[in-house]
Design a protein around this nucleic acid. Structure first.
Lengths: 248, 248
DNA sequence: CACGCTCATAGAACAGTGTTCACTTGAATT
DNA sequence: AATTCAAGTGAACACTGTTCTATGAGCGTG
């Protein structure tokens, strides 16, 4: 996550004569975009999205707020940089038409994991679109998988959006429930789940027969299982559009 | 949208002797939750979500900010009240197993239309969950449709979430693009679309063959068509789980 | 060695936010 | 007519993102 502090500190110390001639100990580590983004993630994880402020980030770096603005145009740009981190070092495989569904699932699982790795990260992700130059290659590879699978172009064009929306939306809801749990008196997830199920079980069964019947399903399943099921539903829907490819 | 101002004004004027005894003309319309929510929507549509502030709402009503807090616990509660309006007066039909897919589609179309009826409404909707007492009946009826269609309970429990997430997510993206268009120099949607397609068409075709090929699909389709396609994809996925029902 | 120069950082300020609290005021009741 | 009482007011608090001017440390140059 955080890169090495600074060359000067991690490299073997320079030869004495050079050292005498130049800066002896630059105590002040220069501010960089990378360091700002790192600090932003620290604040995000500790304080949550609502309390992620430029001032908090600055104070995390022991620096004046205004110093940030020399490296980052606005808070929105900082969000964008944080968003870009979601894709760092994650490469989609080459299309394998035999296993395209599993390839897409892996992509989605990985994406969700990344979103959950930082508190409230889904809230940042939701409002961004991966059309910046750094992120286009990922979309390209996603589209390659869909098209090589034999999806009609019209479907392929939407499929990426649907998977991303599902990923983001699901992780977003997870964030929200986590937040709700945090502000409630429930300490563990099991406790929270018990409260929710109690709420639904207490509903009048004559007015809410289906909700009462499904309460267990809605809250007893793990999020992992629910995520997988939704993914499978979307993929079955997509698969129903697969056309036999032109024999080459 | 806005209910009649006040009983005293819409009802025929009271008999003269009563009128002389009591208040002759209550110039000051009492503040109510309803009026506050109405004003909030006016501000939302005019200023957008980012500029929707308690002070703006108060000034829309020519009232002090603190007066609002006598009727509304917090801004979050105001959001909740606005969210509830999304469901006002929209009743889901009784389950008709023969046409459950069309019933769900109608529900989703209607939901999207409601979300688009107010600027940035999707951003408010995204972060709420329809589990308050007022909204549970709607969820109940949705579940009734899924279950009567023959979906296994596990699938039915997730299906509502998936449809809602898709609706919200789709409308949310529409909001965002609309916002982007507003802040860009593009005045019309066609202009915006042209810009975007230009961007994609200008990509190096050797590095982004699929994106270039799909650019037309991604941006020339109307949002309505894209929404319908996504809906159909999800419904095909759901339908693949339908089990023959017990013969009664 | 000293000079000026430049640019990253600092500090203060601006206009705005959600929320609270002690106060007034105006209508209704006693 | 005096009193009660709740609805509405205005000021305040602790924040927010952003911009502006000033400072000061490190650099190349004279």
């Amino acid at each position: 996550m955080s890169e090495p502090e600074r060359d000067d500190q991690t490299m073997p110390s320079a030869a004495p004569w050079e050292r005498a001639r130049k800066r002896p100990a630059p105590v002040r580590v220069p501010l960089t975009r990378e360091r700002i983004v790192d600090a932003a993630f620290v604040v995000l994880d500790r304080e949550g999205f609502d309390r992620l402020s430029m001032r908090q980030v600055a104070s995390e770096l022991s620096v004046a707020v205004s110093a940030l603005y020399a490296h980052v145009r606005s808070k929105d740009e900082l969000y964008q940089l944080m968003y870009n981190r979601l894709f760092d070092g994650h490469e989609l495989p080459d299309p394998d038409p035999e296993h395209w569904q599993e390839q897409i699932k892996e992509f989605a699982r990985h994406g969700r994991a990344r979103l959950l790795a930082h508190r409230d990260m889904a809230r940042i992700s939701m409002s961004h679109v991966p059309f910046t130059p750094e992120l286009l290659p990922h979309v390209e590879r996603l589209m390659a998988i869909f098209r090589s699978a034999g999806l009609p172009d019209k479907v392929a064009a939407t499929a990426g959006d649907m998977i991303s929306t599902y990923m983001d939306g699901f992780a977003f809801e997870e964030s929200m429930w986590e937040e709700r749990r945090r502000t409630s008196e429930a300490d563990t997830w099991d406790e929270m789940r018990a409260t929710l199920m109690g709420y639904f079980d207490a509903l009048p069964p004559d007015r809410f027969p289906n909700l009462v019947a499904l309460a267990g399903m809605m809250f007893h399943e793990t999020n992992d299982a629910r995520f997988e099921l939704g993914l499978e539903i979307i993929l079955r829907g997509l698969a129903s559009y697969v056309q036999p490819r032109d024999p080459a």
